[in-house]
């Protein structure tokens, strides 16, 4: 799951790894939490969107022979496209029925990933590294990849914050997340707003998928672990809260990285899940979320 870029016990690297991987998972979690916060839908196909990103980059750099940057762009775009198709074609008609939409997204997610397995590649895929080499930071060498991931992720997160808080569309998204009936009363078309959240979620997931694949390779089932970890993050941070997702990602990311590098590598991912269980039992609405009790 959270595999280290390199297994050096270089503390600068460990720290940067934690920072950058957490940011990456934050991207996935943000998309997931936005879709739930605005549309009330638990998009269980989110892991599939990650996989779509990875595979797209794989084909772009492999079969099409383009650069990794093209792959990154294509992966993100295709993630957004599939998400949009999912919303427009299926979810928007059933989003009132919580049970049906939950099952549908879960099944469709599995169809996508199994489809990639059957029609694409059943084994592992790999793509070239984004940026190789290392830079010297305060005297120790740190991997450039980690720096890039950290910077790129935070650029995206920052852009999203700006978008949501300062643009009309972004504020419309906030409005719908509070009350879609109220929002429609003031003329906000919640279908389009929901579509935007799905597209953003898909873009981010696809982006994360490309980067994850370049770091540690990918496969048809690569989406499951990040998705489960995102659950932990999103629940910790509070379903529906973007800020909560970022905070949650860093808490879980750090705890997990520390556990893996200091204790047992086999414990990867388990701490996140343990936190998830505790949160669900003690305070299901997480740090910044809404009421969760039945």
């Amino acid at each position: 799951m959270l595999e280290l870029v390199s297994l050096q016990t270089n503390y600068a690297n460990v720290l940067l790894n934690a920072l950058s991987i957490s940011a990456l998972y934050a991207l996935v979690a943000i998309g997931f939490t936005m879709i739930f916060g605005v549309g009330g839908v638990l998009n269980l196909a989110h892991g599939a969107l990650i996989t779509v990103g990875g595979f797209t980059a794989f084909w772009t750099t492999g079969a099409l022979g383009l650069s990794i940057w093209a792959g990154l762009l294509a992966g993100a775009l295709l993630g957004g496209l599939v998400a949009a198709a999912l919303y427009l074609g299926v979810v928007q008609f059933v989003q009132d029925d919580a049970v049906v939409v939950l099952l549908l997204t879960l099944i469709i997610g599995f169809m996508i990933t199994n489809g990639l397995r059957i029609f694409g590649q059943a084994g592992t895929i790999s793509i070239p590294q984004i940026i190789g080499g290392s830079t010297s930071f305060l005297g120790t060498p740190v991997e450039n990849v980690s720096i890039f991931i950290f910077v790129a992720s935070w650029v995206l997160i920052g852009a999203l914050f700006a978008f949501v808080n300062y643009t009309a569309t972004g504020k419309a998204i906030l409005a719908v997340s509070m009350s879609d009936k109220g929002a429609s009363l003031v003329g906000i078309p919640s279908t389009r707003i929901n579509l935007y959240t799905w597209i953003i979620g898909g873009l981010f997931a696809g982006f994360a998928g490309v980067l994850l694949t370049s770091l540690q390779g990918g496969s048809w089932d690569m989406g499951i672990s990040p998705l489960v970890l995102s659950f932990a993050i999103v629940v910790l941070g509070g379903l529906g809260s973007i800020r909560g997702s970022v905070i949650g990602a860093y808490i879980i990311g750090f705890i997990d990285t520390i556990t893996v590098s200091i204790f047992d590598p086999q414990l990867a991912g388990l701490t996140g899940l343990a936190i998830l269980i505790v949160v669900l039992l003690v305070r299901p609405q997480g740090l910044l979320g809404r009421e969760a009790t039945a």
């Binding site: 739930f36 638990l42 919580a98 049970v99 939950l102 659950f231 629940v235 379903l239 269980i277 669900l280 299901p284 969760a292 009790t293 039945a294």
Partner: peptide, 10 residues
């Protein structure tokens, strides 16, 4: 004790 989506996630 928690709402449907949370139960499904658990």
């Amino acid at each position: 004790r928690v709402r449907g989506p949370y139960l499904a996630l658990i």
